[in-house]
Design a binder for these strands. Structure first.
Lengths: 260, 260
DNA sequence: GAGTGGTCTAGACCACTGT
DNA sequence: CAGTGGTCTAGACCACTCC
């Protein structure tokens, strides 16, 4: 039954967004038990083809287009923007650049906390365990959708930024110019960023915030490590994106061969 | 029941690799039906915690360490190697570099075919639809494991490489020095590589080859587009990695600010 | 209240594994 | 052969949605 329904979905016989027949109907049509119908539907969910809502029905999942995040040029763009005027910086942020949405169409949720660095994090930041770090938690949501575009958590050793109290105040968010500008106010210039990309099943809270309703859909987990011009790690950020709505892009220029 | 077993697994009470009690035992111990036991076990599979084998039992999944693929330096390394001696090129390949395994510990499976470019592929290559392209399918497997490390398919317009008949002969694989060296024999120098990374549920054949036994585990799908010094797309390659055993890494250097 | 999907039980047979 | 997980049936009750 899963095969047959999959055929109808990919061929377009069952349009995106349209409901499947109810489970009792399907069990009669195909002459199988409801348990088997549910197993088949579960397979379709795992393949990301359908979505069920209790009390309403099961629907063909419309494929939302993937947001392309071209991180190579994005990071350089963020750096270049540090030197722009405040007006210019205030007018647009990184997410708008990726999604093509305007700033007023986006909602941000921010939370600042000072916490001691756990072992793994301390390792990544190259600092002793339990050193205080500023932990900033972000959620970005498009007003037109109820699903968050991303969840991320950034960690910066407190020692690096305590010179500027504005950086410890979450009411200054969204900060015009982003993290690279924030760090520039305490004299930090980022020289290199390392992205580590993993795919894994979502945690329960990630599933909820990113509205990942289909089992089988993973998240893209990105750890971004920012290194300044002295080789010191100044920020570690963990971001999570819905795997079915995100594409990460990296452009890698190669050194030219010497001409003969 | 899923919660209780998860607790035992993460706490280490149930050691990695050890078997769970059988489904009938569990249903008696917890006083629930076997169907419910199976539902709970399915949840654990989705979270990647256990693996079932028919006729044998259900086991706590040992977490295999992730292979780090640092693509930024990998691509440059491959390019530099083109200029190395054949002996040197013959001695080691890219996969060995990533995994730390030696060449004799790896098995390759290669298949060459000439096919007309489909619409999407023709777009990506910037050529008219149905232009003939060389399609090369690779599977790399470590001898010590039965799961393939990666599956990939590379497409090169035939017109670019037909000048060197050796490039059309799959018995020359594994080619010492890899694709960048192959292309160099027909005068092509790669100037830029674009990686596009997605996470998605595995297709049935990918699930089998990569031995992705846990539902809920996605694959990392990488499209690599190679562009030569004239701005022409010379190769498009689609690679698929097991999401739970792979980490993709990109190092992005940023341009320095001008000194005052 | 009628209809939906979510959860559950009790029991059957099959395919596969090991001894 | 006994024991395992994989598949299946038939039926029950619950939580939720919508009219």
């Amino acid at each position: 039954m899963a095969e047959e329904l999959q055929r109808q979905i990919v061929s377009g016989e069952l349009a995106p967004g349209s409901p499947l027949p109810s489970e009792t109907e399907l069990s009669q049509d195909f002459g199988i038990s409801r348990t088997s119908v549910r197993n088949a539907i579960r397979e379709l969910k795992e393949r990301g083809l359908v979505r069920s809502e209790q009390g309403k029905g099961t629907f063909v999942r419309p494929q939302r287009p993937r947001v392309r995040r071209v991180n190579t040029s994005r990071y350089q763009w963020e750096k270049d923007r540090v030197k722009a005027s405040e007006d210019e910086r205030r007018s647009t942020g990184g997410t708008e650049r990726d999604t093509g949405l305007e700033m007023k169409e986006l909602r941000f949720h921010v939370d600042y906390q000072t916490v001691p660095a756990s072992g793994e994090l301390a390792d990544a930041l190259g600092i002793p365990e339990d050193t205080p770090v500023l932990q900033r938690t972000y959620q970005t949501t498009a007003n037109s959708e109820d699903a968050a575009l991303s969840m991320s958590r950034s960690y910066i050793p407190l020692a690096i930024i305590e010179g500027n109290p504005d950086l410890l105040d979450s009411t200054n968010e969204p900060w015009p110019g982003g993290t690279q500008h924030q760090l520039s106010t305490v004299g930090v210039e980022i020289a290199k960023i390392i992205d580590e990309v993993q795919a894994r099943p979502p945690l329960p809270d990630e599933r909820e915030v990113l509205k990942i309703d289909a089992t089988g859909v993973s998240v893209l987990a990105l750890r971004k490590t920012s290194i300044d011009t002295t080789g010191r790690v100044v920020e570690v950020a963990d971001a999570v994106y819905a795997g079915d709505r995100t594409e990460l892009v990296y452009e890698i220029p190669l050194k030219r061969w010497k001409r003969p």
